[in-house]
């Protein structure tokens, strides 16, 4: 039984890590007031570019960086439309999904069925020999550990620095932020690009550390799960960790149960992340204590000097 739980938790972290990167990326984007619905598109471009670059250079870490930059480039397109041109963010975001899926299929065609260099888990000396916890927490790959550091870093930036204040101001009340001398467009661009980079890394994690292969459409809807996760975690970075591991765990629970002889309809488990998000939304309506703190200006273009 303990063995079952250990292997389930270990796998949950693995399955949750690509979600965590993308959720954190989307979260800081949204914190600054920009809604980027293109997560699925950014992730798949990240997965393809990451795999391709690891295949070409033989270095999976270059691949991870390339995945990040692919996400960043798509995010820049979104920024050009939604920040510079101030068009509808929903349309521009959705366009990125189509663009990402199509373009990754086209460019990635020649890398399907190839074998690249991957990122393997490493057991941390001493810590990994701890009973139970050692196997769950300390036999993962470096990107798992760095995702946790990034979570702490984002929390620190948001709540302990003046730049974090600027981000929150840009997302809550861009007019006031502008009056206070904050360059709203610049702040939003920075958050969007950094967020895009993280989402791209999440995609590259999928092809280089998790699935360890590239194939068309391999994100299989994880981008949409991440959009739900941002809401689920109430725009709070540390909660995203729990949410990502929980949703990742649901992904693997079905297989673990089947392997020991229980049959759970996989269709049901597939729905749970969305049901959980809806429940969190409902809960936030019922009780003030659980109110979700969505950035007030989320998704609204900011026109300077209109008032």
């Amino acid at each position: 039984m303990i063995e079952f739980i250990v292997s389930l938790l270990q796998a949950s972290i693995r399955a949750g890590t690509p979600l965590l990167y993308a959720t954190l990326g989307e979260m800081i984007t949204e914190k600054s007031g920009i809604l980027n619905l293109g997560v699925e598109g950014l992730m798949i471009m990240g997965a393809m570019s990451g795999f391709a670059l690891s295949f070409i250079t033989g270095n999976p870490w270059i691949g991870i960086l390339a995945g990040g930059f692919a996400g960043l480039i798509l995010a820049f397109i979104h920024g050009f439309f939604s920040i510079t041109l101030k068009v509808d963010q929903t349309v521009s975001g959705l366009m990125l999904v189509l663009l990402g899926l199509g373009l990754s299929g086209l460019i990635g065609k020649s890398y399907i069925g190839m074998v690249a260099n991957y990122i393997d888990p490493i057991a941390i000396p001493l810590l990994s020999s701890l009973p139970i916890l050692g196997k769950i927490l300390f036999t993962q790959d470096l990107l798992v550990y760095s995702s946790l550091l990034i979570t702490v870093f984002i929390w620190f930036i948001l709540h302990k620095t003046s730049f974090g204040l600027s981000i929150i101001a840009a997302g809550e009340n861009p007019e006031a932020a502008d009056t206070a001398g904050i360059n709203v467009d610049l702040v939003r661009y920075i958050c969007l690009l950094v967020g895009g980079f993280l989402i791209g890394v999440g995609g590259a994690y999928l092809s280089l550390a998790y699935a360890k292969l590239w194939t068309e459409g391999m994100t299989a809807g994880r981008g949409w799960i991440c959009l739900a996760l941002v809401i689920f975690s109430g725009w709070i970075p540390q909660r995203a960790v729990i949410g990502a591991y929980l949703f990742g765990g649901l992904d693997v629970l079905s297989f673990k149960l089947q392997a020991i002889g229980f049959t759970v309809p996989y269709q049901l488990l597939k729905m749970i992340p969305y049901i959980a998000t809806i429940l969190v939304l409902l809960l936030s309506l019922i009780k003030d204590k659980y109110r979700l703190k969505a950035p007030s200006a989320l998704g609204k273009p900011y026109f300077r000097g209109e008032r």
Partner: peptide, 27 residues
């Protein structure tokens, strides 16, 4: 023969998890 359903034709990440679960159970 122990069967684990993945539920899709194309999600290599999940296929990997399914295979790993089976191996953990001694296959």
């Amino acid at each position: 023969v122990h069967v684990v359903w993945v539920g899709t034709w194309y999600d290599p990440a999940k296929e990997r998890e399914a295979a790993e679960s089976l191996i953990n159970e001694g296959c």
